[in-house]
């Protein structure tokens, strides 16, 4: 009797405390997800009421060149930028983790650029990539390389953005650094006693230990990179020749420039599905490769 009254009381407090989230979840997550699902079957310009068109949007989408192009652009960017940034940041973390002089300085110096983010970073790199007065071509000119038009050239624009993304390796570096420092030194010692060289002990001890960190960064990095918007909005407007027409930029243009909220909702829904599938796939695949301390058997 007493027990159940207490349970009721607890339940009341529970719901009281989580009520802000509950309200938010319903109004700002659940409702939008369902609503955009509904809109995705309509034609909707927000001035007139939504018109049910069944699978019309989805059918159109598969014939829409811009849709496929935006996927190509986004995937190209993601598969190059995310893994390379990860590897670069791991390498830097390993170097900085050595007991060499100036560690603190290097750590700060490599991280510092990551604080210039968002629009500031986009503007800075638009300027760095300026074909005629920018830093990048100036440096290339020392090696006798002719000026490249970077963000103004459809062949280079996406790679310019990839290069720009490397500038943010500092974040990943810090995370790996923390991971590396978390590798128990007794394990490394043991490896050393067993006669393992630095490379082998890295492969057999360090790498498995930081693999969850790697996985975490991979997922976060991919999800982030599926949602690139700032660069496209601020500096390239998706061009030249749609070469930086990122997926989210495509959603933005369709909804807020072309007023096709129904069509854009279909795009948004596919993004949601893609994010879920990719996350799930990485988690699944990782079960085989990622080492979790204390629980690989489970």
């Amino acid at each position: 009797m007493k027990q159940s009254r207490r349970r009721i009381r607890e339940g009341r407090y529970f719901y009281l405390f989580i009520s802000p989230w509950l309200v938010g979840f319903i109004a700002l997550a659940l409702f939008p997800v369902l609503a955009s699902f509904y809109y995705s079957f309509t034609e909707y310009d927000i001035i007139h009421a939504p018109q049910w068109i069944g699978l019309g949007n989805y059918r159109e989408l598969f014939r829409d060149e811009q849709f496929w192009n935006s996927i190509r652009v986004t995937v190209k960017y993601t598969v190059v930028s995310v893994p390379l940034t990860l590897v670069l940041s791991l390498l830097l973390a390993i170097l900085i983790n050595q007991k060499w002089p100036l560690r603190g300085f290097f750590r700060t110096a490599v991280y510092f650029p990551s604080m210039i983010s968002g629009v500031s970073m986009s503007l800075l790199w638009f300027w760095v990539f300026n074909p005629q007065a920018g830093l990048f071509n100036y440096v290339l000119s020392w090696f006798g390389i002719e000026p490249i038009h970077w963000l103004l050239d459809a062949k280079y624009a996406i790679w310019a953005l990839v290069i720009m993304s490397f500038w943010g390796v500092g974040t990943g570096m810090l995370i790996f650094l923390a991971g590396l420092q978390g590798v128990p030194s007794h394990l490394l010692e043991a490896a050393k006693l067993d006669g393992a060289g630095p490379l082998r002990s890295f492969r057999n001890v360090t790498l498995p230990m930081i693999s969850p960190v790697f996985l975490f960064q991979l997922i976060v990095g991919m999800i982030d990179s599926f949602q690139v918007f700032t660069q496209a909005y601020t500096i390239t407007q998706g061009g030249p020749s749609y070469s930086t027409w990122f997926y989210v930029y495509n959603i933005y243009v369709n909804a807020f420039k072309n007023f096709r909220y129904g069509y854009a909702s279909a795009l948004a829904w596919l993004l949601l599905v893609a994010v879920m599938v990719v996350t799930f796939a990485i988690m699944k695949a990782s079960n085989r490769y990622v080492y979790y301390e204390g629980g690989p058997s489970r």
Binding site: F31, P32, V33, A35, I46, Q227, A255, S265, L271, V275
Partner: peptide, 24 residues
């Protein structure tokens, strides 16, 4: 269950829900 829901919304990309939020 509710906590699982919290975790699941961690992955929810803003662009996927921005249109209804915007309309709201």
């Amino acid at each position: 269950v509710l906590f699982m829901l919290v975790l699941s919304t961690m992955m929810l990309p803003y662009p996927a829900i921005m249109i209804p939020q915007f309309l709201l």
